[in-house]
Amino acid sequence: MRMRKCGVVVAALAAVLAVSGPTATADQKVTELRAYVVAGGKPRGVVEGQHWQSYAMLRDAADKRIGDVSIACVVVKARDKRVLADCGHALRIDGKGTLLIHGTHHYRDQTVMPGTADPMRHIVTGGTGDFAHASGTADLLEVIGGYTYKLGGLG
C-alpha cells in the first residue's frame, strides 16, 4: 500500500518534468527541484514561538520556472546559538497542483548554515490536484539563496 501511494508522488513529478523540463521516466529515482527565496526569511535573533514566512520561485533541474513555494516556520527551540524551527512548505507546480511538505529546520549561530544538518528529512503530507494523495518523504537542503528539494525514492 505504501509503495502505491509513494508512486503517486514520483509519477506526478515525472509528469511535471516531462512537460517543463528534461524527459523524465516513471522509474526515475529522484526528482530535484530548486527554490530561490525572493521575499521573507528567518530573521536574526529569533526566540521560541516566533514565526516567519518566505516566498520562493520554484525551478526544475533545467532551471526552468515551474511554480512557486510558500514556507511558514515557527521556532520550537532557541538555545544559545542553535535554533530548531517547525516548517511547512507548499510547492505550487503550474498546472499540476500543490505538494505539501513538513519538517524541522536546523540553524546554528542563528543563521542558515548549508551543510549543518543536510539533508533534512521532511514528510510529504499530501497536496492538491495531481498530488492529492501524495505521501512519503523529501530531503531538503538549505543552500545559499534558497532550498533544494530531492523528491522520490519514496518507497
Rank of each mutant, 00 (worst) to 15 (best):
K64Q: 11
I66G: 03
D68E: 06
V69S: 06
S70D: 14
S70L: 11
S70N: 13
S70I: 05
S70C: 06
I71A: 05
A72M: 06
A72Q: 08
V74T: 14
V75G: 04
V76K: 14
K77T: 05
D80K: 08
D80S: 09
C87P: 02
C87W: 00
G88V: 10
H89T: 03
H89N: 03
R92I: 04
I93C: 05
T98I: 15
T98S: 14
I101P: 02
G103M: 07
G103H: 06
T104I: 15
H106Q: 10
Y107R: 00
R108V: 10
R108Q: 13
R108D: 10
Q110W: 00
T111K: 12
G115P: 05
A117N: 12
M120F: 02
H122P: 05
H122K: 10
G126A: 12
G127F: 11
A132M: 04
H133S: 12
S135L: 05
G136R: 02
T137A: 15
A138Q: 07
A138H: 00
L140G: 03
L140Y: 00
L140P: 02
L141A: 07
G145L: 06
Y147L: 09
Y147N: 00
T148A: 09
Y149W: 07
L151N: 07
G153R: 04
G153A: 03
